[in-house]
Amino acid sequence: MTAYGVLRAEWVKFRSIRAMLGCLAGAVAAAGAYGYLFGMTAARDYLAAPAADRAAFDPTETAFRALVLAGVLVSAAGALTVTSEYAAGTMPVSVTAVPRRGLLLAGKGAVVALATFLIGPPLALLSFALSQAALAARGVPSAGFGDPGVPGALLGAGLFMGLVGLYGLALGFLLRRSAGAVSLGTFLLILPGMAGLFPEAVARWIVTWWPSAAGARLFAVHAGTEGLAPLAGAGVLTATVLGLLCAAAAVFHRRDA
């Protein structure tokens, strides 16, 4: 029972769950489709805007907006690594193989974090490429991969997805059921998108401090004047995920398996 052994074991489990492939393929589709749609919308707005506003147009602003939606599927994949075990009743078997539960949780976490971290940049790349293509197709100014801030945003997308995957995993341990973990995880992730429904002060707080909104600063191309700095945003999301993981570890350790 070594960390390496547990890691290999968890990887075998991860790759043998079909739904995992579905979630990650869905994340790719979401990143591409929404990336293109956000690009189209931005192009329409640009063409309708007066010349003064056009000067302030930032083509990268919409480039990664699709990643939060793709993140919904990534967090679902994280949750499934845990809830699939509870659903199939294999958690007791896993715990008898690795009775040090912290090690079991860490092994699952490492596999999820690595897989989701690696899928982040390709998702970002896809969303970026299609959104900029949509802009360029209408003759609207667009950005290239080499533009300042873009490579950093791609890496940031990897970190974002890794954190979101762990966030799903923690919810999986806490709630144990796929439906609960996935729906709560989705709701909490996309809450900033519904900020407009709240009073303005609350809305402003949500879009700045809500962990998924703050974490999205990781793939902001320009620091901008609104919202947190990328590192501060990353800090908020990381702290939230660490908090959830600690809660998950405590519950998993105490509960009968």
Binding site: G5, V12, A97, V98
Partner: peptide, 12 residues
């Protein structure tokens, strides 16, 4: 096979 393999790996 994978069911057994995952448990086997965890125990070397």
């Amino acid at each position: 096979f994978d069911h057994l393999l995952s448990l086997a790996y965890a125990n070397g």
